[in-house]
Design a protein around this nucleic acid. Structure first.
Lengths: 157, 157
DNA sequence: CCGCTTGTCTTGACTGAGTCAAATCAAGAC
DNA sequence: GTCTTGATTTGACTCAGTCAAGACAAGCGG
């Protein structure tokens, strides 16, 4: 990390400001962080930054494609600076932790639905739900419950 | 439709109540409806039902597997009674309308990520983003913009 | 280097979706 | 019909995020 953000901001037509650099550094250090976490982390570099400034910066970064917003069901939005490639996410049902999964592009037939119902599809977003290693180790009995509860609904892998 | 809900509720260990029947009928008539819409629709059968009652009913139905909750990014949660099979969703970026897509289970290699980072995955959720036929026809120039804007970020189909 | 223009940040009020808790009510067992 | 317990109502509340007005500063031209 420690990318030089300034030229990337300028290339995107954005001014280089302290709040933006602080948020970008925070994002690089904390992939999959929510806005609240980013406020706290960014304050290490810029103690007076306001939550609204962080929201504004994130919105600007997402708009120009320097950051990506992910919204797992039931959790506040997460942000990441890994953009341009295509990857998906593993989300832990228990602790909410998120991990990246590379998508095997080219060998992904199911990502082009056969019947698109008249839609023109431009993106396929995949979220894998499960339990992370730590949560299974920490509370195995609860983990089993969570999985069983879920499978009743007809989930599949 | 017009399924007899009573036995299904009882089988799930839930009492048969007027609010629950009203919400289930509303769900059957309006697949992919949000809570607010369901309140209005359910009031045709049960005029005094409160929004909180609808939230409570939906939570109970989801908990026992009679309904499914879907949360597309940037929109309120949607509910559907189509459960038990496995299907995914097409979401229109412009108007938010949702359509079902059957998943070709068995021929879906990409839905078992190669590297699960220690996770035990129990469900793969897929959301296809795009534009519905109506939105493309209605505002073709805006539709093109929306798609182009999106593709800058590195989306794929 | 100085000042100007315009985009950015701060401050604070506000919205929308959903939750929580106490009291009332009714489903269904007896 | 009566009772028990789960369901519903009512109303306050939380959380994430938005909106708007004014202060501020990035980076241009001179």
């Amino acid at each position: 990390m420690e990318t030089t953000w300034a030229p990337r901001l300028r290339d995107a037509g954005l001014r280089v400001t302290r709040p933006r650099l602080a948020v970008l550094d925070a994002l690089a250090d904390h992939p999959h962080a929510d806005a609240d976490t980013l406020v706290m982390v960014a304050r290490q570099a810029h103690p007076t930054i306001s939550p609204q400034a962080v929201y504004g910066v994130l919105k600007a970064l997402v708009a120009v494609g320097l950051a990506r917003r992910v919204e797992p069901a039931g959790a506040p939005a997460l942000y990441e600076v890994r953009v341009g490639d295509n990857h998906h996410h593993l989300v832990c049902r228990s602790c909410g932790v998120v991990a990246d999964v590379d998508c095997t592009v080219g060998a992904a037939p199911c990502l082009t639905p056969s019947d698109t119902a008249g839609f023109v599809v431009d993106e396929a977003e995949v979220v894998f739900w499960g339990l992370c290693r730590e949560c299974r180790a920490r509370t195995p009995e609860r983990a089993a419950q969570v999985l069983q509860h879920r499978n009743r609904g007809g989930a599949h892998a």
